[in-house]
Structures are given as structure tokens and as C-alpha cells.
Design a protein around this nucleic acid. Sequence first.
DNA 1: ATATTTGCGGAACAAAAGTTCCGTTATAAT
DNA 2: ATTATAACGGAACTTTTGTTCCGCAAATAT
Lengths: 193, 193
Amino acid sequence: MARTKRFDEEEMLHNAMLLFWHKGYNGTSPQEILDELKLSRSSLYDTYGDKRSLFISALKRYRNTVTAEIIAFLASSENIPEALKTLFQRTKAQCFVGEDKRGCFMVNSKVELAPHDEEVATIVKENREALENAFTAAIKRGQEMGQISKDNPPRSLARFIMNNLWGLTVHSKSGADKKVFDDIIRITLSVIK
Amino acid sequence: MARTKRFDEEEMLHNAMLLFWHKGYNGTSPQEILDELKLSRSSLYDTYGDKRSLFISALKRYRNTVTAEIIAFLASSENIPEALKTLFQRTKAQCFVGEDKRGCFMVNSKVELAPHDEEVATIVKENREALENAFTAAIKRGQEMGQISKDNPPRSLARFIMNNLWGLTVHSKSGADKKVFDDIIRITLSVIK
DNA sequence: ATATTTGCGGAACAAAAGTTCCGTTATAAT
DNA sequence: ATTATAACGGAACTTTTGTTCCGCAAATAT
């Protein structure tokens, strides 16, 4: 009946996500999106709506892939302290990918937009709550398995862990070197004992 | 010899700082600056140069006032654990000023601009290093006075403390309530013993 | 093979962003 | 009081941003 799209919708959304991740919402113009995705103007607007809709879609994609993967990883881990260590190491490694200092897309977006954009604020809040619940459940299991001390309630520890993970993404924007990351990770994990 | 300015240069710079703090660099237009500061276009450009120069000046002002005040506070404190607790409580309190969720201007700026703006990256890096040195010196004194355990080197603890302070400013953008802050502060300070 | 429908290239456009310029006004020093 | 200099108000202008629209192209279903 009609012509088919000559690009992969999901792949383009992924590329748009990477672009917003790098340069922020207000720092990315439609022209840059077109150049980067190699898409025609009409294809962009027909497929994704306006710039803000595209951004919201990208943010949701991040939640459904990156965040979801972390939650799944926690849920499937048997050794919780080891799993947490892995997450910290991965965060550290990602902060040094290609001199990009891109940090975390969710953190970047909430810093730039959450105070003034209701929809972004909602996504960001739900993302935080979902992560907190996943960390809480994992830490609770860790405590029940005797891997983690019961000195602190699991939810408190979950919040503390997340605070340090997010702190690292800010540190990556501050020109901190790997030793700074190592110090922070070592002390943070020492609390989970 | 010539006419005098009808506004206070420092006061206007302060107001500009608050505006950038709220809405970010790319989120603030020259028109908004004029409206907010009640300044004529020519006065703005004659006095502060272009928008980017104004932003840089605002960032430096933050460093010379807010950051400098924290450094002075640490240097003048006798009870270090108490001083750290005060800083955390102040950070928490500021995160809930007027439903603003404005966070920390230095953190906001580095997340938005540091990866793509060399000059911002430099200011942000120097700010981080100055703060780290101030925390390190204070914690070292705290250890020497027997207020803080010597389990960890002072610089490592300094980095850990800063990571959690910055984490809180990110948490404030995530719709977290005060209980979240209290959990994080309690566990963080429990490491400083 | 044809009709139909959607995709695509790019022109076009309104609005805003960001800056400059100029004529007038005020004031400080002489 | 006069003069020199800087401040101010606002017009004006270029560029970019964000979006729409239109005509042609292509592919699918019949």
C-alpha cells in the first residue's frame, strides 16, 4: 500500500539518545540531529514528532534499556557485594569512555530539565524509585544471606549506594582522575559489610 | 568626566548568577536576563560582554563567594565531624528552598557545559581541587585531634565526603524527599568516626 | 500494471536568539 | 558653565531555531 521507511526507527532513536546524552536538550539543535542521524527533516518530524517528543522518547528508551538492565542484573545476582562492586566498576569505566565525560543520561537530564519540565521530572522520579526498590531488594537478600551486615535498613543502604553512584557521574565532569574514583568506591563498599 | 552606572555591578552579576543557576546556560536567553535584571541591552553588553562572558563571570563569582565560604568554614572549624554534619544539613536545607530544586550552580554547570567548554572545565576542575584540599586539611586535623579514625587517608575521606555532597544535589533533582537525604547523611557521617 | 498510500528532499517561514550600533542623556572634572 | 566621556534606550540586523508544507518518489496490495 505504501512506501517503507528507509531507516530503522529504534536505531535512529538510539542515536538521538546518544546525541542528547552528549550535548543536552537545549544544547542540541534540530539541524544537528538531522546531520547526525542522516535523516531528512520530514522523516524526523513525521516519525518522532517535535524535538521535545523525541527527547522524551529517548529518555524513556534509556529507562527501558540501561536502567532496566541494572535492575535485572541486581535481581539475578547471588553475591550482592560483588554485584555492587561490579556496578561501581562499570560506572567508573563508562566515565572514561573516549574522553567523553558524558556521565549518565538520566542524571544529565534531571539536572538540566527536571526543575522546569513536569514530564521529565516524572520520568526521572519513577526511574529513581524503581532503582531504589531494586537496590533495596538486592541488599535485603544480601543481608538475609549473611553477605551484608544488618546495621542499616536495606532501603537506607540502597539510597546511600545510589548517592555515591550518582556522585561518581558528577565527579567525571569535574576532571577527577581514576584514583579519585577508586577512593570513593573503596570507602563506599566498606560500608556494605 | 562621565555618567555613572545606575545599577550596582556586583548586585546585577549576583542576580545573573541566580538566573543561570535556575535555568542553566542554554536555558537562559539574553531577553530573560534583561527582563530579570531590569537592565538595558547596551548596559548588559557594555558591562559584562556577551552572554558567555557573563556566565563565566557568574561562575567565578560563585567560586569566590559560595565555595570560598565553605573553605573558610572548614579551615576555622575546631570540631570537624560537627562541621561536616553542618555542611550536609545546609546542603539538604538548600535543596528544599522554595520548591526550586536548583541544586548547586557548580554541579549544574559542569553537567551542562564542562564536556564541551574548556574554560568552564578549568574553573570546575580548580573548584573541585580547592574543595578537596580544604576537606583533606580539615579531616587531617580531625584525625590528629582524635575526632576521626585514621582507618582511611584524609584525602580519600575528603573525596568520599564530596561525592556524597554532590550526590545530594543530584538527588534533589530526582524528587527525593527529606527522608532520603537523612538516610544518606546518617550513613555517610557514620564513616567519619 | 495500477492505484494508493506513505516516505522523502528540500523550500519556506515565523519566531527567537544573540549582538551591534546610534542618537540621546547624564554626570564628573575642569 | 562647558566639555569630555561614558551610560542608556531602543532600533536594527544577522543567524539560528524549530516547524510546516508541498511536490515527487517508491513500495505494497490488489
